[in-house]
Nucleic acid binder design. Structure first.
Length: 315
DNA sequence: ATCCAGGTTCACA
DNA sequence: TGTGAACATGGA
């Protein structure tokens, strides 16, 4: 089992410009008002710092807002090989949907009055998921049946115990542990040291699964097949699978309905809170076919923008 | 104290 | 297919 490692200093290696499809809402694409704080990333009004991991390779990236492109400063221990550079760029382009065209969604959403204001406020916002499937699965697991406060606390415990602390560009952030880092960890340690409660028994199985199933290989599979495969993992139900489908795999029609989203959607679309998740799903998939998940995303983020889960840092 | 939180599993109709 | 209890932990 891995012990806590000392902080790793990453050095600036490259500066890259990535093209973006406009309109592009920088702030609410790289930072989501509804996401809880993790110390995997940090944000100001016009910048984002974020860590990425590929196997044993760790990266820190600073994103700067520009009008016509995204400016990246890439930090790592070693010089980037062509392969690792390509992989990192591919991850970033996918994570933030840099080249996605949202015009079809905006057209389809005109049938929903409740979306007029959210779209006006957030035009150009994309789905964001810098996490790997393994990472987002764990984050979803830690959101299950508990308060955000405890999700935040459990995440911090896991990162402090098994993650890797890195410094770059004057920031110190955590890198997520790899499947290998968590695969051999006894359930008991996760209970007593990370305070994961009953979730402790699921996490080692997650790690085993993603140790055997590479992220890229999973993305090759057909969507329904991935979701079905993932749901066979104990601890992955409709919500977690929905998060993976809609965020990590960027299915614009997939929905992850938790009690909060469902309430919000109920109020916005039906004028009352006690609506069944399935009702919301069917309604949105009928109203904005092919874009149900995006519709929910715009509604939810515009609501959280009024009182974000995390505040932007000053500088 | 007692309840229950941004789900999921398992048992039993 | 559908419903309901149990699940760990910690804050209200």
């Amino acid at each position: 089992m891995q012990m806590t490692q000392p902080n790793l200093a990453l050095k600036k290696k490259e500066t890259i410009r990535l093209p973006i499809q406009k309109p592009f809402h920088f702030r609410c694409t790289l930072w989501k008002p509804s996401h809880f704080s993790t110390d995997l990333e940090q944000h100001t009004a016009t910048r984002t710092w974020r860590t990425f991991r590929f196997g044993a390779e760790l990266f820190g990236v600073r994103f700067d807002k520009r009008d016509d492109y995204l400016l990246l400063h890439i930090f790592s221990k070693n010089k980037l090989s062509d392969e690792s550079r390509a992989r990192l760029i591919r991850r970033i382009e996918t994570a933030y949907g840099l080249s996605e065209d949202l015009s079809e969604f905006y057209k389809a959403a005109r049938t929903l009055p409740a979306l007029v204001r959210p779209i006006r406020a957030l035009k150009g916002m994309r789905i964001s998921c810098p996490e790997s499937i393994f990472e987002i699965a764990i984050i979803s697991l830690l959101l299950q049946n508990t308060t955000i406060q405890r999700s935040t606390q459990m995440t911090r415990n896991v990162l402090q115990r098994f993650g890797r602390s890195v410094s770059f560009d004057g920031r110190t952030l955590w890198c997520f542990p790899s499947p290998a880092d968590l695969a051999g960890v006894p359930e008991d340690i996760l209970r007593t040291e990370c305070r994961l409660g009953y979730r402790a028994k699921y996490l080692p199985a997650f790690a085993q699964f993603f140790l055997a199933n590479d992220d890229d290989a999973l993305r090759e599979l057909k969507r329904e097949e991935v979701i079905l495969t993932l749901q066979s993992i104990k601890g992955v139900g409709p919500y977690t699978a929905g998060v993976i489908a809609s965020h990590a795999l960027r299915d614009p029609d997939a929905l992850a309905l938790d009690v909060w989203n469902t309430k919000l959607a109920g109020k916005a679309f039906f004028g009352r809170e006690n609506i069944k998740p399935d009702h919301v799903r069917k309604f949105l998939q009928r109203q904005v076919p092919g874009h149900a998940g995006l519709a929910l995303l715009y509604l939810v983020e515009s609501e959280y923008l009024k009182s974000p889960m995390t505040t932007l840092t000053r500088s």
